[in-house]
């Protein structure tokens, strides 16, 4: 209890003084995770929509695999990207290991399956409703993909938020490919892990509270946007 009270005080202090180190870590967390969501969405959402409309042999196996990948442990995603980007790896010459870019890639790999699997679920219901009418208009499954993505935009926003929450909260992937380098690749979760291991629990907890506040703020902002847009588009 004592720790919690101290943590709140510490967190407030950090916010009040706008501690530049903490602010930098916070902004990097936001930048990495938001970019990762955007990147993963570029692949995950169209893939989810395609899986919602396409019927092909082996579809079930793909869906099962995708659902299993939702539980991909962050350290495993980090390790895979580490192997790709390490000096001996196929993408080693790019020199991306231990940079924010590597962290973005690792998080994108981690959440793309989540976005694909969730958007598939969301859009399948919409496709059931639309399929016959769209076919009547002469639109096959391929042409339906952009229509579903647009018409499912509000539900997909929730899917994106789920992806963002997962990205912002994970520590394993960014730790492995980022290296937790102070002032360069240190993000909220790796900072928390570090402070915890150093025994500064109040500071770790304070950073944790700030992280939760950030995730909450992003969700609230998205919800506000959604409500405003829904009012005019139904």
């Amino acid at each position: 209890m004592q720790d919690l009270a101290t943590a709140f005080a510490t967190a407030l202090g950090l916010v009040a003084t706008a501690d530049p180190a903490v602010t930098g870590i916070l902004l990097l967390s936001l930048r990495v995770s938001l970019t990762a969501v955007a990147l993963a969405a570029l692949v995950g959402l169209p893939l989810g929509a395609l899986l919602a409309v396409a019927r092909f042999p082996g579809r079930r196996a793909v869906l099962v695999t995708l659902n299993a990948l939702m539980g991909l442990p962050p350290v495993v995603a980090g390790l895979l990207i580490y192997l790709l980007l390490s000096r001996a790896g196929p993408l080693g010459p790019l020199g991306l290991l231990f940079t924010p870019t590597a962290m973005v890639i690792a998080q994108a790999v981690l959440i793309a399956p989540i976005l694909a699997a969730l958007s598939r679920q969301v859009l399948e219901g919409l496709w059931e409703e639309y399929a016959e009418q769209l076919r009547s208009f002469g639109a096959g499954p391929w042409r339906a993909v952009p229509t579903l993505l647009w018409d499912g935009r509000f539900a997909l926003l929730t899917v994106l938020l789920a992806g963002f929450g997962r990205a912002a909260a994970e520590v394993g992937a960014v730790m492995i490919v980022g290296g937790n380098i102070e002032g360069f690749t240190r993000v909220m979760t790796t900072a928390i892990a570090l402070e915890t291991s150093k025994g500064d629990l109040p500071l770790a907890l304070a950073l944790g509270l700030m992280l939760m506040a950030i995730v909450l703020a992003v969700n609230a902002l998205a919800q506000g946007l959604r409500d405003a847009a829904a009012g005019s588009a139904g």
Binding site: E129, Y130, F137, G138, A139, G234
Partner: peptide, 21 residues
């Protein structure tokens, strides 16, 4: 159809959709 299938868009966008297609 018995139950109209309307897109989650404006009235005008609905009417224009198949024409764009």
């Amino acid at each position: 159809f018995q139950r109209p299938v309307l897109l989650r868009r404006s009235v005008l966008a609905n009417a224009a959709y198949p024409l764009r297609l």
